[in-house]
Amino acid sequence: MSDVAKEIMKMIAEKMNKNHGVLKMSDPLDKLGLDSLQVVELTYLIEEKFDVEVPFNANSDIEAKTVADLIQTVEQLVATRVGST
């Protein structure tokens, strides 16, 4: 697992419903007991941590469906950022 993945898994685990059990890469994001404000806050924390802009509007569906999708999106953003500097 990449550092980005580890970090994001940790962030989600801290926010999600404590009754959820162990977080898996295949878990759908909308089944983690996160309310909409927590999703927005999680996005902010990811942006701050990795210095990226996650293209996400709370009014539209989240494109990343699972934890793995989200991690992949962020990893791509991080790769683009590094490449551009």
Binding site: L37, E41, T43, Y44
Partner: peptide, 9 residues
């Protein structure tokens, strides 16, 4: 570069 998402509420 960004504000905390809870700033307004």
């Amino acid at each position: 570069t960004r504000a905390h998402p809870l700033s307004i509420p």
